[in-house]
């Protein structure tokens, strides 16, 4: 009798020992894993901090040397003796103008495609069309640059732009915006058009997503009182999704502002503000891409300062975009 109870006691003790060991190892791996995930999450914050700090450290000499003047100086003379004169005006101008023109082209197209996909498109071809548009976003930037350089640029310069120039040659203002003095493969406008193609999928994808948050009952009600398709889109879908659409447009703008390789190939790398969109220009990212590898001293610091400006600019735009999209999500969730 006693032996049996002792045996079972031993077994119990052995089991509980085992359990304790197993539990202990579980607790350990549990803690480790939870710690690892937390560390990784904080690493994301550190990454942003690291980017900002390294940019500020790198840009500091240029900030000290040029101060606010940097933003309003057009001259870019890195080799000037004894001290270089460097100003960000030309690349800022090129960045803003190229993104603006790209948005001007891409927003109507993107929204048009989204309206077609959500309101008109037969179900069977909706997915292939969406896929085709979204694959545009997958094509690497350098491929766009190459295609723009070899195909689109020469096509525009040889067949399209001369007739635009000829059409407006006697109209004041327009003839300086579309000046024929420098029409070539490489220009601000050609870069803008490539940018427009590149951001089109972002606008379309987000617009399709936010359009589909419109409760069907709203649209059905509008159709029910005899609205045409356009009236439903214009009076129900667009007002309901305005915040989201603007958010998507801002997100695309953030992309356009920072796009590098495609633009570097076809904008012509010229630090001159000419006022003509058919003239070569430069952008912040193109200036960095084409000059950074060989820069030194103040020149390099000024390029990093350009990078910092670009980061701040895109940060503001992207943050606004996310804010708007978040508001929409909250509303959709509520």
């Amino acid at each position: 009798m006693t032996t049996i109870s002792e045996n079972s006691k031993n077994l119990d003790m052995a089991l509980s020992n085992d359990r304790a060991r197993v539990l202990k190892s579980l607790v350990l791996s549990d803690t480790l894993f939870s710690f690892a995930t937390r560390a990784a999450a904080y690493a994301v914050l550190l990454l942003l901090a690291g980017i900002i700090i390294s940019l500020i450290v790198g840009a500091w000499p240029a900030m000290k040397a040029f101060g606010f003047e940097f933003l309003v100086t057009e001259r870019w003379a890195p080799q000037l003796e004894p001290e270089p004169v460097l100003g960000a005006l030309a690349p800022i101008y090129g960045t803003l103008v190229s993104s603006f023109i790209a948005m001007l082209i891409a927003v109507p197209f993107g929204l048009g495609i989204a309206i077609f996909l959500t309101e008109l498109c037969p179900h069977s071809i909706r997915r292939p069309i969406r896929l085709a548009i979204e694959l545009l976003a997958g094509i690497p930037s350098i491929i766009y640059g190459m295609w723009g350089f070899f195909v689109l640029g020469p096509f525009l310069a040889n067949y399209i732009e001369p007739s635009i120039v000829a059409a407006v040659v006697n109209i004041p203002v327009l003839n300086s915006i579309f000046s024929g003095e420098m029409v070539s493969n490489l220009s601000l406008f050609n870069a803008s058009l490539i940018l427009a193609i590149m951001i089109l999928p972002f606008i379309t994808a987000i617009a399709v997503d936010v359009f589909s948050t419109v409760p069907p009952v709203l649209k059905e009600a509008a159709y029910g009182i005899g609205c045409t398709t356009w009236e439903v889109v214009n009076n129900v879908v667009l007002p309901f999704t305005r915040v989201g659409v603007v958010g998507g447009v801002m997100l695309a703008l953030g992309r356009a502002l920072g796009e590098t390789m495609a633009v570097t190939f076809i904008i012509g790398n010229s630090f001159k503000i000419t006022g003509s969109i058919f003239a070569p220009s430069t952008t912040i990212s193109a200036a960095i891409a084409s000059e950074f590898a060989e820069s030194e001293g103040l020149h390099q610091s000024a390029l990093i300062l350009l990078g910092l400006l670009l980061f701040v600019l895109t940060f503001i735009v992207l943050a606004t975009a996310r804010f708007m999209l978040m508001r929409l999500e909250k509303r959709a969730g509520a």
């Binding site: 994301v44 990454l47 980017i51 390294s54 997100l251 796009e259 990212s285 990078g307 992207l318 996310r322």
Partner: peptide, 15 residues
């Protein structure tokens, strides 16, 4: 993270 997701890749290069 969403900001980093869309940050210009040339900035990552500078960093």
């Amino acid at each position: 993270n969403d900001i980093l997701l869309s940050a210009p890749s040339i900035i990552i290069g500078l960093f």
